[in-house]
Write a protein that binds this DNA or RNA. Structure first.
Lengths: 219, 219
DNA sequence: TTCTTGCATATTGTATCCAATATTCGATAT
DNA sequence: ATATCGAATATTGGATACAATATGCAAGAA
């Protein structure tokens, strides 16, 4: 006999815990670009040896979230304006395609959840919550595509640039604009208009790209 | 003073060497799907401890080339037919876009190199060489796009499925067909017809997908 | 027989220790 | 004063040793 409801969450290795914590800190921008990640310092923070820390850093490096130099250590990976622009183009390409594939398969439950996130988004006041809800709104809409590989790539790409997304949202009219565009995308999903959902998603992302580059140039 | 031509290739850590070797073995299909990767066995093969082996396995897992279960070890990651089909769709989407971006920026040197690979491909007799030249032909054509992030994703995706590409090439008319289609793509690049290069690339990839799924179904 | 139960073995996860390299800072020469 | 060199320190890479978990097998009970 097997008991399903118990053998969950046995997957908590020290390395995994450290990885998740560091990833969260980088994604949310708590660790600035270029900040050094010293192995024994992190090991002390988690009461472990450096071994699981090194494993976590290896994972983060593969994801492009940190950059390591041999015998010199790891730092949080930054993003150049060129790279940022390119990544937003990539997002428009892939996320546009994925939402087109998702719309015809989208369940009422998914639509309900998306609207829930959208409303919570418009009510939220905490910048961290803005970022979380914005991201969840989008990924929920992509989910029903069933395109696991695409979804994985999208997640990794968002991890890579989430900091900048959050910073954009916090700017002047970032919130209002995002809200209006989200509303349009969700409407298209609700009416089953896949091409329109794709087009609006691409516009949404490329508009954000233009905004971002403008702000990066200003600094 | 700094001497540039010397401080190259200082990047040979044990973990890196093991990683590259395992990756090559997986990509070329020398390690079958599901084959277990025992830490101390690999460590003995490379005359190291298990520490750098673990680092290599962690990297491979992040790339999706192996799957690890806690306290049970790593095995070479397989691909389901569904996944395979999806990945070929992804390739058509991204590689089509990238070659469109590359054509207007493509240097004569690049075109020369591509033709060189194509000719070597048509002359080659070794299956391993087919795979290598096929891949190099494509990635050379993508390079001048300058889209570093896209290129990185493409490389990782090809790493993930290269085994199946090679198997396809070795089949009945795989070689002749690939050769003809490559010729068409290169011609479009040479004449600077970016949309045509993009279309032919998408066709090339989606045709290979159909072939692949057919063969997977037959087994 | 067939299923459980406990132990022995194998394998992975982590801690501790040593080696290799980088960085800092002071001494010295120009 | 400035630049250069070298030792002291800090930090990472890897090896060895130990702990935690899984697997296989043998013995016994239903």
């Amino acid at each position: 006999m097997q008991i399903d409801s118990i053998d969950i969450a046995q997957t908590a290795s020290a390395a995994g815990i450290i990885y998740e914590a560091l990833k969260k800190a980088i994604i949310e921008g708590q660790l600035a670009d270029g900040a050094p990640l010293r192995q024994d310092e992190i090991a002390r923070m988690f009461n472990t040896s450096r071994i699981p820390v090194r494993e976590a850093l290896t994972m983060l490096e593969q994801q492009g979230l940190v950059v390591t130099q041999r015998y010199k250590g790891a730092v949080v990976a930054g993003i150049s304006p060129d790279e940022a622009g390119e990544i937003w183009d990539f997002r428009a390409l892939v996320e546009g395609r994925v939402i087109e594939a998702a719309v015809p398969r989208m369940s009422p439950e998914t639509l309900r959840r998306a609207r829930c996130h959208l409303e919570a988004f418009s009510r939220a006041t905490d910048p961290v919550e803005w970022g979380d809800l914005n991201r969840r709104f989008h990924t929920v809409l992509y989910h029903d595509s069933g395109l696991a590989y695409h979804l994985g790539i999208i997640e990794k790409t968002l991890d890579r640039v989430d900091r900048y997304l959050r910073a954009q949202l916090a700017l002047s009219n970032g919130l209002a604009r995002a809200n209006a565009e989200h509303e349009g995308i969700l409407r298209a999903c609700e009416t089953g208009d896949a091409p329109r959902a794709g087009m609006l998603t691409r516009q949404h992302i490329l508009g954000a790209k233009a905004n971002l580059l403008e702000n990066l140039a200003r600094r």
